[in-house]
Design a protein around this nucleic acid. Structure first.
Lengths: 126, 126
DNA sequence: GTAAGCCTTGACGCCAACGTCAATGTCAAG
DNA sequence: CTTGACATTGACGTTGGCGTCAAGGCTTAC
């Protein structure tokens, strides 16, 4: 299939696909006229990328999963590098959550100072 | 005082101060040679901006606080617009935390699939 | 032949908050 | 006079993941 069909089937833009190729995540053989040609495996590759991005992974984070799939494994999860990324991401998320909760507490404290009663009420001024 | 001293006292770069001015957050009178001249009130303004940014506020978020201070209030918190920003920010943070926790759960689930036992162990492979 | 719909590469735009040069001006000390 | 530390404006670079033209080539249908 050509890039337009892959884009439709994977739910991404053609621009995104060319970008993934430029980043070395996917590659395409070329037909005689220079058009990119993809197969079913590429649909799965792109699906993997998108599902990882949906949970906050960057393209770099997705790279080991893609390489895992391309190495013939049935799942992008089935390689040590992928597992390592999962673990690192979990740690990153935990760090972010902690930072966010700390900020939340500070903001709530400031709001309580600025507007006593605001924090537990729904309305505007006390 | 001139921009270098304000920068040192507020713990920011001169570039940041010029940027804040460009964004309309702070202003400076000019001495005869064109240099920016600041006073003590500006130190407090910049401190307010930095403390807000430290908890994840954007410069736009900080604007009402700065205007509040410039209107003569002793605290940037003491204006309705500031309180509104606090409340909006709290809601934003809550949304972010929920999203992060949802992602965390998905990543943990994938990790559990890819590497049973990994989630509760500290080591690498099971 | 020509319109429609696909494809190609290249390159600028976007967002935030500055960092970092560049080229130049100002001012006090030696 | 010169050095050095300050200041000025202007403008490009950074980060990620594309969006959005631009200018053109290929293919099929009419």
């Amino acid at each position: 299939m050509r890039i337009g069909e892959l884009a439709r089937r994977a739910g991404v833009s053609t621009r995104a696909l060319r970008y993934y190729e430029q980043q070395g995540l996917i590659e395409a053989r070329r037909s005689a006229n220079g058009y990119r040609e993809y197969d079913e495996a590429d649909v799965r590759l792109v699906a993997e990328i998108r599902s990882l991005m949906a949970v906050g992974f960057t393209l770099e984070d997705a790279r080991p999963f893609v390489e895992c799939l391309r190495s013939g494994k049935p799942s992008g999860n089935a390689c040590p590098d992928s597992v390592a990324v999962y673990r690192r991401k979990l740690a990153e998320i935990d760090t972010e959550v902690r930072a966010l909760l700390a900020r939340r507490a500070e903001v709530a404290a400031q709001l309580a100072l600025a507007c006593p009663g605001c924090v537990f009420s729904r309305g505007g001024e006390p």
